[in-house]
Design a protein around this nucleic acid. Structure first.
Length: 728
DNA sequence: GACCTGCTGCGGGGTG
């Protein structure tokens, strides 16, 4: 057995501790948790569910299900799974005769709690162990808060004579152990025993390749009257010279993919679903033209389940295939032996880069191989200083450096998540029928996961929900669901705590290919690349939300809506250090290195690595902030509150104000105390969670002030800027 | 300029 398995068995069987087991992917975590759990429940495997396993993905649950069934072959231990794709008959079987191990998603656990109320004591009365897989995926989002609440709701069904159930968390990428421990055992975090794999880790082979986007020959702002204009030569419709330059650079990257991926199985991560489709199309086109088999597949969340399963099965079959994918293949699902991981463009986080790299080198004697592709503009003196910096290259390199330093973003759990609390209020009432406000507060806030809510805040939230007919208060003081609350609760999409947007299905004949967002739908006659094939739109059924397509020869990038993620301050800080410190990095190729040197020259020339203000023409200025997304949002709100028109430029803020006036205004603002609530008023958009539309602006502002702004670090940046001499 | 995750219960009708 591996050391973590021995440690976990001892810790579980010889103490009463809860456990956090951290080890690299394929490090034997599942067995480390289940060997002792199964041993301890095998004495009395039935009568109640004895072990509950919660996983974030259906595919992961399916994988673990087969592994556990094998482990339990000689144990007379039933193993059940429950998620949206599991037939109702199997769910009924569990409810009829609860026992053994149940593998489930948070959303399905929610459905049990509100739809099987009469069976809850039987199901959970004798629960002994809870295993949470990929626990890092639950630490800072709505889904994690949701799961934390579900766990407490399950705890309430413990039979009197039973001990409380034990908790085990599993993860490969924990950025902050104390936050994970607190999540597993709120109130008793110090007692959570951490078991980690200290072995040296795998050899990593990686290289970062730079690509230059050649400057457009004309600064042609050809008016973009959609693609109907010229039936241009070739298969594609670049709308502007910039698009053409972009496509040329993408094509060079596709060349490299074909050359390096042809003989093996590989996973290439790209940052946008539209990019995934174009790269797959370009690479397969190269294969066709060279008389090679087309070996590039795609995998992302907008493809239909069938197409994704096709891709997964083809990858598992062992043929040398390469899948270009999004974060759908970042976690869990074992897709066989992967030789190389590609990352096109800078990753948003170090955690995601590490997780992606962990998908290669799963075999003992294989190293992990990573190939990062980064595009930058060709140097030009005409653009403003920030545009002259290769930000994508700096961000990618910063993420690599931080990964080598073994740093991972610490999660930042929400403190005032109105939407997820609303979700849990509605489902708690659905579960218990009716409840008074006091006990509801005790359950969800004082003794629950929503500890950031005070009694007055909770009361305000209840009043607003009552005002929207979500809740009603009966004459006896009990809260019940109102008309709107009942509608929300009975809808099919109630079970998830996170928000999703409206979509059209995209259909070829009778085959569903996937979905496209409502807001960016192509028109009839337009072309699109989807599922790595080219299509033309033949009809749109706006009533049934269906887009009909037929195979075509031309291509166009599909458009998806993305809200983007949060870039941690440490990445921006590392980007700044890369410009200031003249160290050479061995993993950069010659083009990337040249770009970095050029960037350092520009930076030292214009002193860009310090926090200060630069003129931008006569009327505008650039404030170099080098701040993470949260702080950047705070600074933008501050400028808006001062009546200054400003724009996010990632490492800087562009202001419509001459530099000298901006400097004066910023110096004056250092004296004023930053008031988060006042700044929150200037943040847009305000509604971004599932039930945010139920609240008025004042209460949303309080939530934003606490969770989406960082006044302390904003003030620090403000002070550093104010301290800079003007005549730089 | 940008990602992902998830999901009723019930009744009617056909088949073995």
């Amino acid at each position: 057995m591996r050391p973590i398995q021995v440690d976990a068995i001892r810790a579980y069987l010889q103490t009463d501790s809860n456990l956090l087991i951290t080890a690299d992917t394929a490090g034997g975590k599942t067995e480390a948790a289940f060997l002792p759990v199964l041993s301890s429940i095998s004495v009395e495997p039935t009568g109640s569910i004895r072990a509950l396993y919660v996983g974030p993905l259906k595919a992961l649950i399916n994988d673990q299900f087969s592994r556990l069934e094998e482990l339990c072959t000689y144990l007379e231990m039933p193993v059940y799974r429950w998620h949206g794709d599991v037939p109702a008959s199997q769910k009924k079987a569990l409810v009829r005769e609860p026992g053994g191990v149940l593998l489930i998603t948070p959303e399905s656990l929610e459905s049990i709690l509100i739809n099987r109320t009469s069976a809850l004591h039987r199901l959970f009365g004798g629960l002994r162990a809870l295993v949470i897989d990929e626990v890092h995926a639950f630490l800072e989002n709505e889904r994690g808060l949701h799961l934390a609440s579900l766990i407490l709701r399950v705890r309430r069904y413990r039979a009197l004579q039973e001990p409380p159930f034990r908790v085990i968390g599993l993860s490969a990428t924990v950025g902050d152990v104390s936050i994970a421990r607190h999540y597993l055992a709120p109130g008793d975090a110090d007692a959570v025993k951490v078991i980690s794999d200290d072995s040296a880790g795998k050899e990593i082979q990686f290289r970062l390749h730079g690509y230059i986007k050649q400057a457009e020959t004309e600064s042609a702002e050809s008016d973009t009257g959609d693609s109907e204009g010229s039936e241009a030569d070739g298969d594609t419709d670049p709308e502007t010279a910039q698009d053409a330059a972009q496509l040329a650079a993408m094509s060079t990257i596709a060349d490299d993919l074909v050359e390096h991926c042809r003989m093996h199985s590989n996973l290439i991560f790209a940052n946008a679903k539209g990019d995934i489709e174009i790269y797959a199309d370009l690479a397969n086109e190269k294969c066709r033209r060279s008389g090679l088999p087309e070996t590039f597949l795609v995998h992302h969340g907008s493809l239909s389940k069938e197409l994704r399963e096709d891709t997964e099965a083809t990858m598992k079959s062992g043929h040398p295939m390469t899948t270009i994918c999004s974060s759908t293949l970042e976690m869990g699902i074992d897709i066989g032996s992967v030789r190389l991981i590609g990352q096109i463009g800078a990753p948003w986080s170090v955690a995601s880069l590490k997780q992606r790299m962990g998908r290669s080198g799963r075999k003992d004697n294989e190293p992990r191989r990573l190939r990062v592709y980064v595009m930058s503009d060709s140097p030009s003196q005409e653009r403003d200083p920030v545009s002259q910096l290769p930000l994508d290259l700096l961000q990618a390199t910063a993420a690599c450096e931080l990964m080598l330093q073994k740093w991972i973003e610490p999660p930042r759990p929400a403190r005032l998540d109105l939407s997820t609390l609303t979700h849990q209020i509605i489902s708690t009432i659905a579960e218990v029928g009716a409840i008074e406000a006091g006990p509801l507060f005790e359950r969800l806030c004082r003794n629950g996961p929503f500890t950031g809510f005070t009694t007055p805040m909770f009361a305000r939230l209840l009043r607003q929900l009552a005002g929207q007919d979500v809740l009603e208060q009966g004459p006896d003081g009990n809260l019940i669901l109102g008309l709107v609350g009942e509608q929300i609760r009975t809808r099919y999409d109630f079970y998830a705590a996170f928000a999703t947007s409206a979509e059209f299905s995209i259909v070829d004949g009778s085959r569903v290919l996937g979905t496209l967002p409502l807001d960016t739908l192509p028109k009839v006659g337009e072309h699109i690349v989807f599922a790595a094939r080219r299509w033309q739109v033949v009809d749109i059924d706006t009533g049934r939300l269906v887009l009909y397509v037929k195979p075509a020869r031309r291509r166009k990038r599909p458009r998806f809506m993305g809200s983007g993620g949060e870039i941690h301050a440490k990445i921006r800080e590392q980007m700044r250090l890369l410009l200031m410190n003249p160290t050479d990095l061995v993993y950069l190729d010659s083009i990337a290195l040249e770009s970095l040197h050029a960037a350092r020259a520009v930076a030292s020339d214009r002193d860009l690595a310090r926090r200060h203000v630069l003129p931008l023409g006569k009327h505008r200025s650039l404030w170099l902030t080098w701040a993470g997304t949260t702080t950047q949002r705070t600074l933008l709100a501050l400028l808006a509150s001062m009546g200054i028109e400003a724009m996010d430029r990632q490492i800087a803020i562009e202001c419509r104000l001459p530099d000298e006036s901006l400097r004066t205004r910023l110096r004056a603002s250092v004296e004023i105390e930053l008031n988060p609530l006042r700044l929150a008023h200037h943040v847009v958009p305000k509604q971004f969670r599932k039930f945010d539309h139920l609240f008025d602006e004042a209460i949303l502002d309080e939530s934003i002030a606490l969770d989406r702004l960082d006044c302390a670090s904003a003030l620090q940046i403000l002070r550093e800027t104010a301290a800079m001499p003007a005549e730089l």
